[in-house]
Amino acid sequence: MKVAIAGAGAVGRSIARELVRAGHSVMLLERDTANIDPAAIPDAIWAHADACELSLLESARLQDYDVVIAATGDDKANLVLSLLAKTEFGVRRVVARVNDPGNEWLFGAAWGVDVAVSTPRILASLVEEAVSVGDLVRLMTLRQGQANLVEITLPANTALAGKPIRKLALPRDAALVTILRGGRVIVPQPDDPIEGGDELLFVTSVEVEDELRQAVGR
Rank of each mutant, 00 (worst) to 15 (best):
39 A>G: 06
40 A>S: 05
42 P>D: 03
43 D>Y: 01
45 I>T: 10
46 W>R: 03
55 S>P: 02
55 S>I: 05
55 S>C: 01
55 S>Q: 14
57 L>N: 08
57 L>V: 11
58 E>A: 15
59 S>N: 11
61 R>E: 11
61 R>S: 15
62 L>C: 08
65 Y>A: 05
67 V>Q: 14
68 V>D: 10
72 T>N: 02
72 T>Y: 00
72 T>C: 07
72 T>S: 06
74 D>F: 00
74 D>C: 01
76 K>S: 09
77 A>G: 01
80 V>C: 06
82 S>H: 04
83 L>P: 01
87 T>Q: 14
88 E>W: 03
91 V>I: 13
93 R>M: 12
95 V>A: 10
95 V>D: 05
95 V>P: 01
98 V>D: 03
98 V>C: 08
100 D>A: 10
100 D>E: 11
100 D>H: 08
101 P>I: 03
101 P>K: 01
101 P>F: 00
102 G>Q: 05
103 N>F: 00
103 N>R: 04
104 E>Y: 02
104 E>Q: 10
109 A>Y: 00
111 W>N: 08
111 W>T: 08
111 W>D: 00
113 V>I: 07
114 D>A: 02
115 V>C: 14
117 V>P: 03
122 I>D: 10
123 L>P: 12
124 A>R: 14
124 A>G: 13
126 L>A: 10
127 V>E: 12
128 E>Y: 02
128 E>A: 14
129 E>A: 13
130 A>T: 12
132 S>M: 09
133 V>C: 02
134 G>R: 07
134 G>K: 06
134 G>S: 09
136 L>F: 01
136 L>G: 12
137 V>R: 07
140 M>L: 15
140 M>N: 12
140 M>V: 13
141 T>N: 11
141 T>G: 13
145 G>I: 12
